[in-house]
Simulated assay, not measured.
Amino acid sequence: MGQLTDKGIKAIIKSGDEGRFADGDGLYLCIRSAGKAYWALRYTANGKRKLFTIGYYEHISLAGARTEAGLLRARIAKDGTDPVAERHREKQKAIRTTDDLFDDWYSQHAKRLKHPKIPLRKYERDIQPVLGGLKVEAVTPRDVRAVVHKITASKRPTVANDALALMKQLFNHGIKLDAMASNPAAAFTNQDAGGVEKSRERILELPELKALFAALRSRPDAFTRENYLACALLLVLGVRKMELLAAQWSEFDLEKGLWSLSAERTKMDAAVLIPLPPAAVAWLEELKVRACGSDYVFPRRRASKRYPHMSPDTLNAALNKLAKAGVISHFTVHDLRRSCRSLLARVGTPPHIAERCLNHKIKGVEGVYDRYDYLDERRTALTAVADIAAPITNLDV
């Protein structure tokens, strides 16, 4: 029989005394400040003494606390259950849906990724609409196939492969957390998604470049001046698409002809100082007028919460539209970067300088010891490229 009584408990609470009052067999009435009383069970687990909170006195009577304490003692004695550990486990975020699983995966992996927005964008755009609300244990290989088929139907094979790879990582994470028994994406290969990817090697020769920019100029209604200047800059500077489209004016010193590209926005481990040929400076000055005070060189076209600058899909969509209309032959934005590399070779640029013009990492011992940035040499090389490209891209040609 316990030592406490209902009458005694009310007296203790009324007195305002704080402390722990024993009822027997490890059950205690604990009084906090302001007269808040709760029940707790003292027990031993794995050789350690622990205190487990059962509940507040206002919700659980003395008889109810004794019953609950008896059940807990029986479980501890029977299978070694640790009530405190069990409660901590229950407090962990429940992973019920694919959205929950992605949130957990992303919270752990985003900080390790150099470009954490890339998997987030892939999930939100292509995986979440199909799988986001499904319970993780209910996702089947057919659901995975539905995701990749939807992407391949939109003629984005590389994205389909990327989405499949992300789903494999995601569901492996689910297995690690015991949220699911198997990976529904495990049996799929790139052959089931976008196919085996071949290295892209297309380079636009000078006649093709002339025809391309002439065709783009002929359709200002479908291909805006901002899009046109973006293509011209990509050809002359050889930078990656989003390095340019997400650029802010604070990165540029047009008087000195320099662009300071931060390490966070490149695939390099350090910031890059890019020399700007006179033609590129002239195009940027025009873009600054067109930006109408925006912080970005290429401001967003429509109200969007995703990007404050031109969307990654804008140029591709505009070019694909012209290709479908037969105005231009199909090519990718990245072909302009390869074409810049070809023009650098055409003007006699040494390979190690040409690679630095494209912000490529130099591999091997040379990359470790050669820290000189070749700024003057790169300025000479890119200016020579611009001297060839500017007559092709200027409107009056």
Rank of each mutant, 00 (worst) to 15 (best):
P275L: 02
V196I: 15
V272E: 13
L209S: 02
T224C: 06
V236K: 09
E264H: 06
F252Y: 07
W259D: 06
L204V: 00
A279Q: 12
G194L: 13
L245C: 12
E205G: 09
V281M: 09
A232F: 03
A215T: 05
E208F: 00
G195F: 12
C231E: 02
L234M: 14
A211K: 11
N190W: 13
E251T: 06
R265I: 00
T224Y: 09
F252M: 12
A222T: 06
P278I: 03
R265V: 01
P220Q: 07
G194E: 12
A246W: 01
Y228A: 07
A193V: 13
R217E: 11
D269F: 03
F252D: 10
G238F: 01
D269G: 10
D269N: 13
Q191T: 15
M242Q: 14
R225P: 02
E251C: 06
D192M: 11
A263Y: 04
P275I: 00
E264D: 14
R225C: 04
V239I: 10
T189F: 08
R200Q: 09
A270T: 13
M242W: 09
V239K: 04
L261M: 12
L245K: 09
P278D: 03
R217L: 11
A211Y: 03
L244T: 03
L244S: 06
D269R: 14
L261P: 06
A270M: 08
M242N: 15
L229S: 02
A280L: 05
A222M: 12
A279Y: 14
E264M: 07
A263L: 00
D269C: 00
R202A: 01
Y228N: 03
R265P: 00
R200V: 03
A280Q: 03
K198A: 15
E251L: 05
F213R: 04
T224L: 12
E201H: 01
A279S: 14
M268V: 05
A215G: 08
S250Y: 02
F252K: 10
A193Y: 11
W283Q: 11
